[in-house]
């Protein structure tokens, strides 16, 4: 399996986003053959901000949320940033977070946004393939990627963004 890592064009995240692709590649290096940069042969796209054009492709999308949860919880993200973030959560097949605290926050958010459906829960009752803790390495992500299908079916439905609140119809 090859992994294509993309640097997220999110300047407002500040220095945390700098060097993300290299750091991410380094973390995955023990498990995978990692390709940093764009390429045709990749199966997975990972980034702290997934490009919109990847949403409707067949590739597995991994959202690395680690740069933003503290700012998000503090309410420091603006309305547009928040909306963009929720859209990313909706489209991601796998979500990486820093530790157990962030995992709980994100699971609560996913439930509230209506992004966990009964079908998702039946496939992954612990949501261990959907929301992955990076605290103890990337083993969880590699296992999730090795599974033939992602836990969550990607939201291929219209999205209304209103006041930074995402609702699905």
């Amino acid at each position: 399996m090859k992994v294509l890592a993309l640097r997220g064009p999110w300047p407002s995240l500040g220095p945390q986003a700098q060097g993300w692709a290299e750091a991410f590649a380094a973390q995955l290096a023990p498990w995978l053959e990692v390709v940093v940069g764009e390429g045709e042969g990749c199966q997975v796209i990972a980034a702290p901000l997934l490009p919109v054009q990847t949403f409707f492709g067949p590739k597995r999308l991994v959202l690395d949320t680690r740069p933003w949860p503290s700012r998000w919880l503090e309410g420091a993200l603006g309305r547009k940033e928040r909306a963009r973030l929720y859209l990313q959560l909706a489209m991601a097949d796998h979500i990486i977070c820093e530790g157990a605290v962030e995992r709980d926050n994100i699971i609560g958010a996913l439930f509230a946004l209506g992004l966990v459906w009964p079908s998702t829960y039946i496939r992954d009752p612990y949501l261990g393939r959907l929301v992955i803790c990076a605290q103890n390495g990337m083993d969880g992500l590699v296992q999730a990627l090795s599974h033939p299908t992602p836990a969550k079916r990607r939201q291929r439905i219209s999205v209304i963004l209103r006041k930074g609140l995402l609702s699905l119809i």
């Binding site: 919880l73 309410g75 709980d104 699971i107 958010a109 439930f111 509230a112």
Partner: peptide, 16 residues
């Protein structure tokens, strides 16, 4: 654990 998940839910709903 419940507290953290409810905080995430509240934040996602735009509530404090």
């Amino acid at each position: 654990r419940q507290r953290l998940s409810y905080l995430g839910a509240l934040r996602a709903l735009g509530l404090r």
